[in-house]
Computed example of a mutant assay.
Amino acid sequence: MKIIAPSHEILSEIDGAKMLRNIELCGRVCYKSEDRITDGSAEKFVGMILKSGHESVLEHEKITVRFICDRGVTHEIVRHRIASYSQESTRYCNYSKDKFGNEITFIRPFFWAEDEEKYAVWKNTMQEIENAYGKLISLGAKPEEARSILPNSVKTELVVTMNLREWRHFFRLRTSERAHPQMREVALPLLCELKGLVPVIFDDINGADASY
């Protein structure tokens, strides 16, 4: 059994300034003001777009991210309909094989300290599940059958592509204090990183401190 923390990886090669220039070019078609494009006009234009609520223009740019998290979190992510998803399949992945180190990887629930009894109960349960999964496979069960005992805590990988408008929607919902704490655990660091890579687009979304 392996226990890891969740993480994310931005798969897109991001040039934030280039993104803004493309959004400006697309957006100015609406006003037929392409002649007003200058070297420094994109940030101001996109800021105006956001302020006016004309966010459909943001759909011309997209970002792809790989989340490594528990399956419970992915159930929330995939509720965002305007997106493309590719997810590690428990139907086809046989975690008893050498490819996976002959073990199941679980995501550590950060809200329990490792010296708490609650964490011990969780960890012991995950070990029992891994043992039972291996037993089912040894008895001839297919991975798609043995997966029926896997919990939300099992690690999964989910590749997500959203346009910038949908990423804004995602962050407004998933960094809110009302969001599930494990959802915020992956959404807040991503928001922080994207703010540093893409000017203007996410500046008005104020997630809480991303440290846990």
Rank of each mutant, 00 (worst) to 15 (best):
W167D: 07
K195W: 02
S96V: 01
H80A: 13
K118D: 11
S89V: 14
E130D: 11
L194D: 07
V159A: 00
I82C: 12
E88R: 02
K195A: 07
P151D: 14
I149E: 01
V78H: 11
L136I: 05
K118H: 06
R108D: 12
E177L: 12
H180Q: 10
P143E: 04
R184D: 05
L190W: 12
K118Y: 04
Y85N: 14
R178A: 13
H80M: 15
L139C: 13
K99P: 01
G101P: 06
K155G: 02
S89Y: 14
L150N: 10
E116L: 05
T175Y: 13
V186E: 00
P151E: 14
I137R: 09
V78P: 11
I137C: 00
T105W: 02
L173Y: 01
Q127L: 15
N131D: 09
K195M: 05
Q87A: 14
N102I: 05
I82Y: 11
S86I: 04
Q87C: 14
S176N: 15
N131A: 08
E144I: 01
I107N: 08
R79N: 09
L150M: 15
S138T: 09
Q182A: 08
N163Q: 10
Y119K: 02
T90F: 03
Y95A: 00
V160H: 10
E116A: 10
C93R: 06
R172K: 15
T156I: 09
R178W: 06
L136S: 02
V121R: 04
R168K: 15
F110D: 04
F111Q: 15
V121D: 09
S176Q: 13
R147L: 02
I104V: 15
T156M: 07
A179N: 12
S148W: 00
K135E: 00
I149F: 02
L190E: 13
F110H: 14
L173S: 10
F100W: 14
P189M: 07
E114N: 13
S86Y: 01
E116K: 12
E157N: 11
R172Y: 10
L150H: 08
D98G: 00
N124V: 11
Y119R: 06
I82L: 15
Q87R: 15
F170C: 13
F106T: 05
H180M: 03
S148I: 03
T105R: 02
K155Y: 01
A83I: 11
T156R: 01
T161S: 11
F171A: 00
P151F: 13
R178K: 14
N152A: 05
E177S: 12
I77S: 00
H169F: 05
